[in-house]
Nucleic acid binder design. Structure first.
Length: 336
DNA sequence: CACACACCCTGTTTGC
DNA sequence: TGCAAACAGGGTGTGT
């Protein structure tokens, strides 16, 4: 369930459940789903059981749960989850029958729901979980999004879930961010902030984007430049900004680069508001439900259908073993 | 350093 | 109907 909106849907669904949850049992059904974990699965299991999950945090497509071990550890830890191409985290009752492609099972005792199960389900096993050490954020800002007012009113945020302080704008009356909010898992440290992060530095990203010598879509997909954008939302943002995916970054104007980033943000927020994009049962929230953004797609998967802006048929082109979808009339390579 | 590409996997859908 | 090929929203490591 890969791109930013889909991962955020999962994070938001898990946050109220995991906050303060004690891990009572861990079962690894497929070792390959621990490929990001350094050490054997017995180590993963032993260190998790008895510890407490503090919250659910997301940066781009990475999700993690700040973790307090049962026994003191030198560095604060985090349970990291990356969904890859086909991962899901499903919230199940403790006696729920095993999901078909479940790879890891976490049983927790949650303050809000009691004994529940987090099922990590992943068809292709490009995703994984890991218990990882954390490091302080270099800029001292919150490491990621832990749930506030991305959507809805500030009032809705105020009644909020545990850990709401993580992404809150600093103000005189705001409580200090908890320690976990300022630490990022080691394996996530190289991932850039995403465009919905309050600490996202738009002008710096524009400058770096224009300094690239590549096609603009490749740059948008580079998680070290900005995170959270994958193939769907890259195509949708490029369509909205009328930029060709192979547009050379060096021939992009600064104004159009800014427009593109603002369209990225708009597309991500709209998709989030519709619960993410689902084409099938593969991309679902923690309760197994699909989002609705697939009905709003203008370009992705729309080859042969009319461009919503000009009516020209959307085309699909090969791109890095995948596809790009674009309007050949609205989106042309610009040379200056 | 920045970039392009191969690779990691399995289940479902498509086409012959 | 059966089978093979094509396809899928990801990140990482390696080579240039």
């Amino acid at each position: 369930m890969p791109e930013l909106p889909e991962v955020e849907v999962v994070r938001a669904g898990l946050a109220p459940v995991v906050a303060g949850s004690v891990v009572t049992g861990v079962t690894v059904l497929d070792e390959r789903s621990l490929k990001r974990h350094r050490g054997p699965s017995v180590d993963f299991v032993d260190r998790l059981v008895g510890g407490t999950l503090d919250s659910a945090v997301r940066r781009g497509k990475f999700l993690w749960f700040p973790f307090e071990p049962a026994e003191r550890h030198d560095h604060p830890l985090a349970l990291v989850a990356h969904l890859g191409m086909s991962g899901q985290v499903l919230l199940r009752s403790s006696d729920h029958p095993a999901d078909r492609l479940m790879r890891i099972r976490l049983d927790v005792d949650s303050p809000s729901l009691g004994r529940v199960r987090l099922a990590f389900v992943d068809q292709r096993i490009f995703g994984s979980m890991a218990l990882d050490e954390t490091v302080p954020t270099p800029d001292g800002r919150p490491a990621g999004y832990a749930g506030t007012h991305l959507l809805g009113s500030p009032e809705a945020a105020a009644e909020g879930e545990a850990g709401a302080a993580a992404a809150a704008a600093p103000s005189a009356s705001a409580p200090a961010a908890p320690a976990w909010a300022l630490r990022v898992p080691q394996q996530v440290a190289h991932i850039a902030r995403d465009p919905l992060d309050p600490a996202f530095d738009e002008s710096a990203v524009v400058t770096r984007l224009l300094a690239r010598r590549t096609g603009v879509k490749r740059a948008l997909l580079d998680q070290g430049l900005l995170s959270g954008v994958g193939n769907i939302y890259a195509d949708e943002s490029l369509w909205a900004a009328r930029v060709h995916p192979e547009q050379p970054t060096e021939a992009l104007s600064r104004a159009r680069a800014r427009l593109l980033l603002s369209e990225v943000r708009a597309v991500l927020l709209k998709a989030l508001g519709e619960g993410g994009t689902s084409f099938d049962a593969q991309y679902v929230n923690v309760n197994g439900q699909s989002g609705y953004f697939s009905h709003s797609l203008a370009a992705y998967g729309q080859q042969g259908r009319p461009c919503p802006r000009c009516g020209t048929a959307i085309v699909r082109e090969a791109f890095m073993n995948r596809s790009s979808h674009l309007c050949p009339r609205c989106q042309r390579v610009r040379t200056a």
